[in-house]
Structures are given as C-alpha cells and as structure tokens.
Amino acid sequence: MTETMTTSNQPPDRSEESPRSGLRSGSLERRGGAQLQTDQGNTTIADSVVSKIAGVATREVPGVHDMGKGASRAFGALKDKLPVGASGPNPARGVKVEVGERQAAVDLDIVVDYGASIVDVAQSVRKNVVDRVEGMTGLEVVEVNISVDDVWLGEEEPEAEPRVQ
C-alpha cells in the first residue's frame, strides 16, 4: 500500500544533465560544508547543520507524520523507546543534502498523514525548507526532492473482545 511519489522544484527536462549539475562547489568542500566569506574571516557550515535544519523544517509542516525509509523509521522507533538517551526524533533522519560553496540540494523521505493532500504537503514542505535553509545558512537551495514513502493510517486498533465468553 506504499506508494512513492517524487516531486521536485526543477523542470522535468533535465534527463541529459546531472540533477546536481547546478550546484557550484568550491574549495571549502574539503571541510564538507558551505562557507561565508567576510573581511574579518570565514564561516564554515557543516553539512549536518543543513540536514538538521531541513529535517526540522519538514517536520514543522502539518501533514508530515514521520521521516525516513522503512528500516530507519523502525530503528528510530526502537531507539525512542529506550529509556536512556532519548532525545526526540533524529532531525536528520530521512534527509540527504549536497552542499556546495553557495548552493544546496535537499532530498527528503517523508510519511504523510492519511487524509492530507500530498501535493499540498509537498508544496508546503518545499517552501518551508527553502525558507529555513536559505534564511539561516544563506545558501541558495536549488532543489528539494520529496519522496513520499508511506501514508500513516493511524494507530492499529486493539483486537475487539469476543462477544461470547
């Protein structure tokens, strides 16, 4: 019952070029992050920071139930049940980013709530991720690819008691 839908904010006629071809990389990739250059020095932003921002921005959107593919969600649910070290959901789960010197591309795996419009949720997620990442890091987000991996149907109802003893 799982259906995958991938949307992107790029036009579909990009079959000849790499999906990341618009990403400008720079010398700062040796540190694995983006860089803001000023007269007084440089600021480097780690890729994990961009991942966490994108993950939290995605979870902020109503209609997004969870993030990540099936195995990572199952592992995350198991981890959340541990009494020690529980610190909420891993915000970077279900997020892959590619960060260049000035630009970033984001891939998201999400689970939407049943009844929510997937198109509307995807548009809201894309807008929020772009706003958050660009606003906080100053990077230009050139792609937000969203993969809807599952639909949350709600908690499973407990088995009904037998009507006869």
């Binding site: 007084q40 020095g41 440089n42 600021t43 780690a46 920071v49 966490k52 939290v56 909420g88």
Partner: peptide
Amino acid sequence: PVEVVIDDIATPYDEAA
C-alpha cells in the same frame, strides 16, 4: 582573522529533551 565553524545546531528537539 577569525574563522568560525558551525559544527552543529541545537534543534527544538534538543531543547525539549
């Protein structure tokens, strides 16, 4: 010069925890 490296971010989940 001053080189700043942002290695991590404290998310709202971290603050709630």
